[in-house]
Simulated scan of single mutants.
Amino acid sequence: MDSRAEKYLAHVDRLSGGAEAQFYSQESASPALPGVTTLVYEGLSEGTLNAFTYGVSLAEHPAWQESTRELHISVRSDDVVWAEALSFIADGMRGTCTFAYGDTIDLGERVTPESEMTAFCVFAPALPDPAGCSGLDVSVAGHEGHDLIDIVGLYPLHDIEMRYLHEHGLEALWRRDWDPCDVRRRPAV
């Protein structure tokens, strides 16, 4: 029987079209939890870096009644620091952040030198089939009930966009004319 991690990895491999991943490990800041593994896929589409975490779903959060979360990022960049930021956020905020659509994460400093962006918002993952990222059953033999994971997307934001989202909501920001995967873009507001 496949382990929980193997089932998740198999699903992420399908989402990536069978591309080969590079694995990065983030040591856990919590002695109660194992580290976070980030699977990085470069070039799924021209000039795009995609990364998925595994380890957020090992934490508990009171808001996660039906399913837990894992994170995804898709950016037009070849800088692996974006994936490292995803790992950092996953480890540092698991169990405290709901990672619900519209949540924001403010790092307070630029993620990479190539971009002015300092924050992220959570929304549906930037994948061809975002519906295939909800309710992934990673249950193993002996587990009572279902062990479900939802993969959510993190999108880099400028500070002014994060403030706009807080004032006007996620839908208002998403309706703006902007490319959420472009890390070099000007602010949408």
Rank of each mutant, 00 (worst) to 15 (best):
M1K: 12
S3Y: 02
K7F: 06
D13S: 14
L15W: 07
G17V: 00
G17S: 10
G17Y: 00
A19R: 14
E20S: 12
E20V: 15
Y24R: 14
S28E: 02
S30K: 09
S30D: 13
P31R: 08
P31Y: 06
A32F: 09
A32T: 14
L33E: 07
L33A: 08
T37Y: 00
T38L: 04
L39P: 00
E42T: 07
S45D: 15
S45Y: 04
G47D: 03
L49A: 06
N50I: 01
A51C: 10
A51D: 02
V56M: 01
S57L: 02
A59P: 00
P62L: 10
E70T: 01
H72S: 08
H72F: 07
V75Y: 00
V81I: 06
W82N: 02
L86F: 06
R94L: 08
G95C: 11
G95I: 12
T96S: 14
D106V: 05
L107H: 11
E114K: 07
T118C: 01
F120N: 13
C121S: 10
A124I: 01
L127I: 08
P128M: 04
P128I: 02
P130G: 05
C133I: 07
G135D: 10
G135F: 14
H143D: 15
D147Y: 12
D147E: 14
D147M: 12
V152K: 03
G153S: 05
Y155C: 05
P156E: 09
I160D: 11
M162N: 09
R163T: 13
R163V: 10
H166Y: 05
H168R: 14
A172T: 09
L173Y: 12
R175S: 09
R175C: 07
R176N: 08
D179I: 01
D182V: 00
D182F: 01
V183W: 05
R184H: 15
R185H: 09
R185L: 06
R186Q: 15
